Every structure is written in C-alpha cells, then in structure tokens.
Amino acid sequence: MQTAEVIAINDSLGIILSQEILDKLQVGAGDSVHILEIPDGMRLVPYDAEFERQFKLAERVMEKRSDVLRKLAE
C-alpha cells in the first residue's frame, strides 16, 4: 500500500502521486482520470471517453429504472 500527501494548490487541494502509480495508471501531466466511488472508498482509472459514455448511460438507466433494480436486488 502506498500513501499520497494532500497539498494546498492556490485555493484548492491536490494529491501528489508517485511515478510508480502514474506508470501503473498510464497517465501523465495533463491527462485526466475518472474517480469512481466504490463501496470501500474511491478508485482512479485513466480517462476513457467510451467508458464515460457507458457509465453515463448506466446512470440514466439506474435512475429511470430504480424501482425495477431495487426489486431485482431483493
């Protein structure tokens, strides 16, 4: 497990990631990442336009059909 320090950047906060983590994510300066909320915390994944499109579609379905999904989960 690695840790990262939260630092002040002007009026915001940022996290400095080690080169090892950046290499594993395959991202660098100027790249974007998705930040996903998962049951036990957050997950970072490299930005992928197709993933974002599919995720937004899934969110719309879950919002529109929440009653059906709730029933299926029983």
Rank of each mutant, 00 (worst) to 15 (best):
L25N: 07
Y47V: 02
S12Y: 03
K24N: 11
R65C: 15
R43S: 10
M1F: 07
H34A: 07
K24M: 06
E74Q: 06
S66K: 09
K71Q: 12
R53N: 15
R60V: 02
V45N: 10
V68H: 12
E20P: 07
E63H: 10
E20C: 08
S32V: 00
A58T: 10
E37G: 09
M62L: 13
R53T: 15
N10P: 03
D67C: 09
F51K: 06
L22C: 15
L22I: 05
I15C: 12
E63C: 03
S18I: 02
Q19I: 10
V61S: 07
S18Q: 02
M1T: 11
K56S: 10
L22V: 06
G28Y: 00
V68W: 13
E59D: 05
F55C: 07
V61Q: 10
E50G: 14
G14F: 04
R70A: 12
Y47A: 14
A8H: 14
E20L: 08
V27M: 06
K56I: 03
D31I: 00
D48E: 04
E20W: 01
A58P: 08
G30Q: 01
A58W: 09
D11V: 00
L69W: 11
S32M: 05
L57S: 11
L25C: 09
A73L: 12
E5Q: 09
D48S: 10
A73P: 03
E20A: 15
D40F: 11
L44A: 13
D23P: 09
S66T: 02
G28M: 00
L36A: 07
M62Y: 11
L44N: 06
L25D: 05
I7D: 01
Q54E: 14
Y47R: 05
R65N: 14
Q26E: 10
G14D: 01
Q2C: 11
S12G: 02
A8L: 10
L44C: 12
L36V: 06
R65Y: 15
P39Q: 07
Q2W: 10
L72H: 05
